[in-house]
């Protein structure tokens, strides 16, 4: 499965020749026990993140009325030291084009603004290849 990077404008740049930032977003579905997101949404692959972290509004879409019913709160710390209270739920993530529903612990927080797929998601793949030259990411499923 190959997905082109998505290029977004950034209003600040030390290098004027690159006013856009290419980021590895992939379309995914989220599956709960009885409900799933009806349409896919883009989540960003982050090889430096430990977990799968989603904005809390996505929880409602899979039947979780209150994220605090999950395990937690656990602290998730960002690169600048900012902490977010995170509640984890056992759910499944499905990549668009892949028939597999991958079991992952999904952390929800009111402070998370970008759906993030960290290393607990990567472990379901034999390889995750970030091709910077072609600006695309390839996910090779485990056999």
């Amino acid at each position: 499965m190959k997905f082109p990077y998505q290029k977004l404008p950034v209003h600040q740049s030390p290098d004027p020749s690159t006013p856009r930032i290419a980021r590895p977003y992939i379309p995914v579905y989220l599956h709960g026990e009885k409900q799933s997101t009806p349409s896919p949404y883009y989540a960003m692959l982050d090889s430096g993140a430990d977990n799968v972290l989603f904005p809390s509004d996505l929880a409602k879409e899979v039947g979780i009325a209150d994220i605090k019913t999950g395990k937690g709160p656990f602290s998730t710390i960002g690169i600048a030291g900012q902490r977010a209270a995170t509640y984890f739920h056992n759910l499944k993530v499905q990549v668009q084009g892949d028939s597999r529903q991958l079991p992952v612990m999904v952390g929800f927080s009111d402070n998370i603004i970008i759906p993030l797929l960290g290393r607990s998601f990567f472990k379901h793949f034999k390889e995750v290849v970030f091709n910077e030259e072609k600006e695309r990411v390839e996910l090779k499923p485990s056999s």
Partner: peptide, 12 residues
């Protein structure tokens, strides 16, 4: 397909 637009005035 849905996308949550991040702030565009900062790096991630």
């Amino acid at each position: 397909v849905l996308f949550r637009v991040p702030p565009l005035d900062a790096y991630l």
